[in-house]
Write a protein that binds this DNA or RNA. Structure first.
Lengths: 216, 216
DNA sequence: TGTAATGTTTACCAATCGGTCAAATTATCC
DNA sequence: GGATAATTTGACCGATTGGTAAACATTACA
């Protein structure tokens, strides 16, 4: 008798490994491009190069597939923030956080768009992750930033909005890529735009946070 | 004989005016929440409180409805950038641009999400608008910023990436609202978060662009 | 090599999709 | 008030949706 798919994890075969990988890769392609509601199982199956029932043998529902994808990608996605080091030099920590986030926008735009689509549409499938692990991590790092501000290493500012602004400016280059390209025109749409963006953002954030003679 | 809908604009009745308004309002609700592919005509008809065939009497296809909505909203959406004044004081111009964009994110989040959804999914329906009117407007304002930089009124920086960073940081509060709320927690999710955001962003941009003793 | 478990496919299902049609209803204007 | 045009609706269409059933093929392993 066929083992019910829920118990499948007891012993994963080589084929399971490969096919699930193959399916999630295709799912990332499709979900990131069309959002959950806008994506179809047929589409994903086609991109994965297998039949729909075969796909549904590995993931029983569209939701299950989406969830597996989120789970697999979320940890990696938060890596740059996790690397934010309280002991480091503030200016250098912020600079390298920006750089890492920009690299992710450049190298993993689909992952960025996957989350962007999800959050944009009300985060119906990742609410728990946002209010749980994400919030806790941000709270922790916000405390670090607050301490830096208190000791005068950077300007006095709201650490949460600082983090938001780093997220938004960097992820912008993945999520709104077509707009960026359209505005910059063909001649500046090469990979060099990430270098330009990095230069500008470091200038902005380092300059904007440096505790020279700040207002109030 | 019933006048074909294509020629309807020759003389618009009161009912046409009202119903189209009513439909586009509902369409904004639905499209901004689910994107084009993820939205259904039935959904929009239900929100609008009319039957589906009745809706299709005013807009013959889903595409036509979406297009009408984009056309109606785009002009307003670009208003803040258009107000950017070359003659004004740079610091004050940037400050008020940020403020206006934040107000739009607060007061018209659906419009922001409509475009975000569209751009995120590759802008299949607004490519022309991005490469045409939008690019031209941005090019024009970028020239203004470049002149400010050249005359030393602000730091030397890439004007395009400056505009991108203002767009992304401000629209973040509309597009990623649920994430912002989740991270800030209930206690800071009131309308006050826009005040906090405004304070931070002005601090960041004014400080980051001020031509004190800048690097290089 | 046989067999039991695993993997794949064909054919199908009910629900929903975007959209049409003709008939019925309502508004407009002389 | 009646004719005519504008509006609204219920019934319906073929295509696509997420998902299932069962037969079939393949693999792993004793």
């Amino acid at each position: 008798m066929t083992i019910p798919r829920a118990a499948k994890t007891l012993r994963r075969t080589r084929i399971q490994e490969e096919k699930e990988e193959q399916i999630l890769e295709a799912a990332l392609d499709v979900f990131s491009a069309s959002g959950f509601r806008g994506s179809t199982i047929d589409q994903i199956a086609e991109v994965a190069g297998i039949s729909k029932p075969n796909l549904l043998y590995y993931f029983r529902t569209k939701e299950a597939m989406h969830r597996a994808l989120i789970d697999r990608v979320l940890y990696t996605w938060l890596e740059p923030l996790r690397a934010f080091d309280a002991e480091g030099n503030p200016e250098e920590e912020i600079r390298s956080y920006i750089r890492r986030k920009l690299e992710m926008a450049r190298d993993f735009p689909r992952e960025s768009r996957l989350f962007a689509n999800e959050v944009l549409q009300g985060a119906p499938h990742i609410e728990d992750e946002l209010k749980g692990p994400l919030k806790e991590l941000v709270d922790e790092k916000a405390e670090v930033i607050r301490a830096w501000a208190k000791s005068g290493k950077i300007i006095k500012c709201d650490p949460y909005h600082l983090i938001f602004s780093i997220w938004s400016t960097t992820q912008h280059y993945a999520d709104f890529d077509v707009q960026v390209r359209a505005v910059l025109g063909q001649e500046h749409s090469g990979e060099g735009r990430f270098e330009d963006a990095a230069r500008f953002l470091e200038q902005l954030f380092i300059g904007g946070l440096r505790p020279d003679r700040s207002e109030s």
